[in-house]
């Protein structure tokens, strides 16, 4: 990638950030149209996060919806220190984890001593296959895998979110990787 292309990318990113900040400012003034634009900009990523974390399509839609409603209610406290998207994804993550914590299988699967491996589907192939394979991971392993490998959180952050030790987060990730590698090999 050339230097000028990198500069162009940087300028584009700054422009997008400024446009997003303007939309946030308008939304803070009760401009529902601006908030709808923010929704259209981010629903894809928010829903992908919810879908991968909680697996169930209907529940993922409900959680994505809840994330946007919560974000609206907290919008006045958003000071723009980070990108709106990052702030929104954190809200969505918390909404999903809050839901998952109430599920008994999730609580059980966070215990790394529960090493019962679940069989992976045989018919997985290519991109959709991996998506499906991720959805077949045990709750704990899938959650850590999504947060670490797809969302870019650190083990320290994940340990805090899930109220587990960092070592458990690493072990869950290792478990997820091993299961996914079965599909690839």
């Amino acid at each position: 990638m050339s230097i000028s292309a990198v500069q162009d990318d940087k300028a584009d990113a700054q422009e997008k950030r400024a446009a997003e900040q303007a939309l946030v400012a308008r939304a803070k003034s009760n401009d529902y149209g601006a908030y709808e634009q923010l929704y259209r900009m981010h629903i894809g990523r928010v829903y992908a996060l919810c879908r991968r974390l909680c697996k169930d399509q209907d529940m993922a839609e409900d959680l994505a919806q809840e994330a946007f409603i919560l974000a609206w209610r907290k919008l006045s406290s958003f000071r723009g220190d980070s990108a709106f998207g990052s702030w929104l994804y954190r809200i969505a993550t918390n909404a999903c984890l809050s839901y998952l914590r109430k599920q008994k299988p999730f609580q059980n699967s966070l215990d790394i001593d529960d090493t019962e491996e679940e069989s992976m589907p045989d018919d997985v192939d290519g991109q959709m296959g991996l998506e499906h394979a991720i959805s077949q991971l045990p709750h704990g392993a899938r959650t850590v895998f999504v947060l670490y490998s797809l969302e870019g959180h650190t083990h320290d952050e994940i340990a805090g979110m899930l109220n587990i030790a960092q070592g458990s987060s690493k072990a869950q990730l290792h478990r997820a990787r091993q299961l996914l590698q079965k599909f690839l090999s």
Binding site: N30, Y35, G44, I69, W72, Q127, L130, S149
Partner: peptide
């Protein structure tokens, strides 16, 4: 494979109408 995953997945139904109805009850305190 991971890198090839879609960063975005669109929900099957448009969630905006329900969101709009809900947030209308909580106007920003400008």
């Amino acid at each position: 494979e991971i890198r090839g995953l879609d960063r975005e997945i669109m929900p099957q139904r448009d969630l905006w109408k329900a969101i709009e109805r809900n947030i209308a009850d909580y106007p920003q305190r400008k």
